[in-house]
Design a protein around this nucleic acid. Sequence first.
DNA 1: CGTAAACATCCAAACTTTTAAATATTTGGT
DNA 2: ACCAAATATTTAAAAGTTTGGATGTTTACG
Lengths: 89, 89
Amino acid sequence: MEHRFVEKATGAIADKYRLSILLELSDKGSMTCTDIQELTGLSQPCVSHHVKQLTESGLVNARKEGRNLYLSLNKESLQQLSGFLEKLG
Amino acid sequence: MEHRFVEKATGAIADKYRLSILLELSDKGSMTCTDIQELTGLSQPCVSHHVKQLTESGLVNARKEGRNLYLSLNKESLQQLSGFLEKLG
DNA sequence: CGTAAACATCCAAACTTTTAAATATTTGGT
DNA sequence: ACCAAATATTTAAAAGTTTGGATGTTTACG
């Protein structure tokens, strides 16, 4: 297990807005940046920034379709992180 | 599950020094702040600060014995966090 | 082509975290 | 009582994060 991945992924989760995005993605399956803007009430550039952190962490997948960016959970990496923590404790 | 706990706990893990402390605790079972100073090469106040974050996150238990502070993993909270992530993905 | 919608990038302000020097506290040994 | 060891606290600097305004890019639609 890459410790850098653990560091990045936990860092990506450790924010109330990003956590709420992850929860919503878990619930809904997929969302666009505009959906996230509505969900969080944050400005568009700020949403863009959080989305970047989430995708760069590897926890979230992004698929561009026309003008929209569809986000979804990367379930494998979430399972990887979960497994790491389970073994840790 | 408390989202504040998830936020705090992931934030506590998201640092290379704190992650290495957690790994070492997982391996060795228990350590003092002096051990951590040797492990990380950080200054004593800095270690004290990181230890505080880890204990306040709930991921690490601290037991004072004489002049020493013995740290150990809080396995239950690690399992809780792991379970949260597993359900998320 | 012109316009608007969706997202990205750049920038700077506000805020938070990380770090260590100095100092304080608590405890154990002599 | 004295001294040293282990940790905590205070303080301040450096570095990093978060935020939104302004602006840029890409794509859809009439």
